[in-house]
Amino acid sequence: SREEAAQTDRQRQRRSPPRSAGTPQALAGLVRCGSCDQLLHLTVTRTRRQVYRYLRSPRCPQSPKCRAIAYDPALTQIIAAVCAALAPTMLPAVPRLQTRQQALRQQLQDRQALRPQLPLGLAQGFLDGETLTLRQQNLDREMATLQSQLAALPPFDPAGAIANLSQPAFWWGLSPAEQRTYLREFVAGVRWYTTGPVVDFHTP
Rank of each mutant, 00 (worst) to 15 (best):
E4G: 01
A5S: 11
R12H: 07
S20H: 10
A21D: 14
G29W: 04
L30Q: 09
V31S: 15
R32M: 15
R32C: 15
G34N: 09
S35Y: 05
S35T: 13
C36D: 13
D37V: 15
Q38W: 08
L40C: 11
T43I: 08
T45R: 14
R48Y: 08
Q50Y: 06
R53P: 11
L55F: 03
S57T: 09
P58A: 07
R59V: 13
C60I: 05
S63E: 11
K65M: 05
I69N: 01
I69F: 01
L75T: 00
T76W: 00
I79M: 03
I79T: 02
A80L: 06
V82P: 01
C83K: 00
L86V: 05
M90L: 15
M90D: 12
M90Q: 11
L91C: 10
V94A: 12
R96E: 15
Q98V: 09
Q102T: 13
Q102C: 12
Q106M: 14
Q106A: 15
Q107N: 08
A113Q: 13
A113C: 05
A113R: 06
P116T: 09
Q117N: 02
L118K: 03
L118R: 02
L120A: 11
L120H: 02
G121C: 06
Q124K: 03
F126P: 00
D128A: 07
G129N: 04
E130G: 07
E130F: 02
T131S: 11
T133L: 15
L134P: 01
N138E: 15
M143G: 11
Q149P: 04
L150W: 11
L150H: 12
A152R: 07
P154L: 10
F156T: 10
A159S: 12
G160P: 09
A161W: 01
I162Q: 01
N164A: 13
N164R: 05
L165Q: 00
P168D: 06
P168I: 07
F170S: 01
G173R: 03
L174V: 02
S175H: 06
P176N: 04
R180N: 12
T181G: 00
T181C: 04
Y182N: 03
Y182W: 07
Y182K: 02
L183E: 04
R184P: 08
R184A: 12
A188K: 07
G189R: 07
T195K: 05
G196D: 10
G196P: 04
V199I: 05
F201G: 11
H202N: 07
P204A: 10
